[in-house]
Simulated assay, not measured.
Amino acid sequence: DGVIAHGMLSMAFLGQFIEQQIAAYPDALLTRFKVRFANMVRPGDVLTCRGLVTGRSREPDGREQVTIECWAENQRGERVTSGEAVVSLPSA
């Protein structure tokens, strides 16, 4: 009942969040990004994006692969969108 925001809006916010986190690495690549829409976002909701590194590995070419669990939550702390991003970082 009523107006809601399209799920792709919260997905875009999460993508922007991940891009901001890796901005210090000019050669970083977002290689995979998937999300799940859990709750509706209504006009006036305030979304906060958060993330947690859940895995690291080394690729054959020496790049580091970092897995990040990410989510957008509303002002009540309810997760509205949850996702996972995989980022490839240049070798140090």
Score class of each variant (00 low, 15 high):
residue 90 P to K: 00
residue 42 R to V: 09
residue 38 A to K: 06
residue 5 A to I: 08
residue 35 V to Q: 08
residue 2 G to F: 10
residue 27 D to K: 00
residue 49 C to V: 12
residue 51 G to V: 10
residue 12 A to P: 11
residue 80 V to A: 01
residue 78 E to Q: 06
residue 5 A to V: 08
residue 36 R to S: 12
residue 87 V to P: 00
residue 75 Q to V: 10
residue 14 L to I: 07
residue 29 L to A: 11
residue 74 N to E: 13
residue 74 N to K: 11
residue 35 V to M: 09
residue 89 L to W: 04
residue 21 Q to A: 05
residue 9 L to E: 07
residue 67 T to H: 10
residue 29 L to G: 04
residue 33 F to R: 04
residue 12 A to G: 10
residue 65 Q to D: 10
residue 48 T to R: 15
residue 86 V to A: 03
residue 8 M to D: 14
residue 44 G to W: 15
residue 52 L to R: 13
residue 28 A to S: 12
residue 41 V to W: 14
residue 19 E to F: 03
residue 73 E to D: 13
residue 11 M to P: 00
residue 58 R to Y: 13
residue 8 M to E: 15
residue 73 E to I: 05
residue 29 L to D: 07
residue 65 Q to C: 03
residue 41 V to I: 15
residue 6 H to W: 14
residue 69 E to I: 11
residue 11 M to F: 11
residue 45 D to V: 13
residue 55 G to C: 15
residue 12 A to R: 04
residue 12 A to Y: 08
residue 37 F to L: 12
residue 8 M to R: 12
residue 65 Q to M: 12
residue 59 E to F: 05
residue 22 I to A: 00
residue 61 D to G: 09
residue 25 Y to E: 15
residue 17 F to P: 01
residue 83 G to R: 01
residue 92 A to W: 02
residue 67 T to G: 02
residue 70 C to W: 06
residue 41 V to K: 06
residue 72 A to G: 00
residue 8 M to C: 13
residue 36 R to W: 12
residue 23 A to P: 15
residue 92 A to E: 14
residue 23 A to V: 12
residue 36 R to V: 09
residue 12 A to Q: 00
residue 35 V to Y: 08
residue 87 V to K: 02
residue 23 A to F: 14
residue 81 T to C: 11
residue 68 I to G: 00
residue 57 S to A: 07
residue 46 V to P: 10
residue 57 S to L: 03
residue 58 R to I: 13
residue 84 E to C: 03
residue 88 S to I: 06
residue 41 V to D: 03
residue 83 G to C: 08
residue 8 M to K: 07
residue 73 E to M: 05
residue 41 V to E: 00
residue 17 F to G: 02
residue 64 E to Y: 02
residue 2 G to H: 04
residue 15 G to L: 00
residue 37 F to K: 04
residue 49 C to N: 11
residue 32 R to H: 10
residue 74 N to F: 05
residue 8 M to Q: 12
residue 78 E to T: 14
residue 34 K to G: 05
residue 34 K to A: 07
residue 24 A to M: 07
residue 10 S to G: 07
residue 86 V to K: 02
residue 32 R to T: 03
residue 67 T to M: 04
residue 46 V to D: 13
residue 55 G to V: 08
residue 66 V to Q: 02
residue 40 M to C: 03
residue 69 E to L: 11
residue 91 S to E: 13
residue 45 D to Y: 11
residue 79 R to N: 03
residue 85 A to T: 05
residue 7 G to R: 02
residue 78 E to V: 14
residue 38 A to W: 01
residue 24 A to T: 05
residue 2 G to N: 02
residue 33 F to K: 06
residue 78 E to M: 04
residue 32 R to N: 08
residue 12 A to S: 08
residue 75 Q to F: 06
residue 14 L to W: 03
residue 91 S to M: 11
residue 38 A to H: 04
residue 75 Q to L: 14
residue 89 L to E: 10
residue 76 R to A: 15
residue 40 M to F: 09
residue 4 I to C: 01
residue 88 S to W: 05
residue 4 I to E: 03
residue 76 R to D: 15
residue 23 A to Q: 15
residue 92 A to P: 15
residue 56 R to F: 09
residue 91 S to L: 08
residue 7 G to K: 07
residue 44 G to V: 13
residue 45 D to E: 11
residue 76 R to L: 15
residue 85 A to N: 00
residue 6 H to S: 15
residue 77 G to S: 12
residue 54 T to I: 07
residue 3 V to G: 01
residue 81 T to V: 12
residue 42 R to T: 12
residue 39 N to P: 00
residue 89 L to P: 04
residue 21 Q to H: 06
